[in-house]
């Protein structure tokens, strides 16, 4: 016999302890790995992820007018801003803002200037996700008769958050500016979102 019981029990640790710990660790890791598909099946599925892009024709939108389109089940606000609205948005000092980040999806630490929230040469077009960053309500301000709030942009009726003409949070409980989705101009008056 190469080993005896005495050899096994040296230091109070024997082979059986190792087998117990090994078995328990293997079962725990295996159990956790088996759980993962049960959790992951809740994530957005392939068909949802593939519905990622839409094209929108901007030609019919008159200055001062706004439309709402649906992208990934979220409302996208597209506003053809009046020159004075653009000026007002540009005049704001970024340091004054509650959220100094431009909140353009796919970027980080971009200052929340109006230029960063629009496309160069297309400053009159503001394209953003029309969801209040507080608890997900749709702010008012798209229709002509809507209350636009004290900053002339959008106003969320749920808990009183007010956004400026660049969709940046200026007042109320919402923590962040409304997000800018990824989009590009495919033609002069046509954009592709997503």
């Amino acid at each position: 016999m190469a080993t005896t019981i005495d050899d096994d029990q040296q230091g109070g640790i024997n082979r059986r302890d190792f087998i117990y710990i090994g078995t328990a660790a293997f079962a725990a890791i295996g159990g956790a790995a088996a759980m993962w598909p049960l959790i992951d099946q809740w994530n957005p599925d392939a068909s949802t992820l593939s519905l990622a892009s839409i094209e929108v024709d901007l030609a019919p939108i008159q200055p001062g007018q706004a439309i709402t389109v649906l992208w990934r089940g979220k409302p996208i606000f597209i506003r053809n801003r009046m020159p004075e609205e653009v000026e007002k948005a540009k005049a704001v000092d970024v340091k004054e803002l509650k959220d100094p980040d431009a909140e353009v999806i796919g970027t980080a630490n971009l200052p929340a200037t109006d230029a960063n929230r629009t496309k160069p040469g297309k400053e009159k077009w503001l394209v953003m996700i029309g969801i209040c960053t507080h608890l997900g309500c749709i702010p008012k301000g798209q229709s002509a008769g809507d209350e636009k709030g004290p900053y002339g942009g959008w106003f969320c009726p749920c808990h009183g958050s007010a956004y400026d003409t660049s969709g940046r949070i200026r007042m109320g409980p919402a923590p962040r500016n409304m997000e800018i989705p990824p989009y590009r101009f495919v033609e002069d008056t046509k954009i592709k979102i997503g």
């Binding site: 809740w42 957005p44 949802t48 990934r72 979220k74």
Partner: peptide
């Protein structure tokens, strides 16, 4: 998004 199974309810 995990709860929603998408990008919105």
């Amino acid at each position: 998004q995990w709860i929603w199974g998408g990008f919105s309810v």
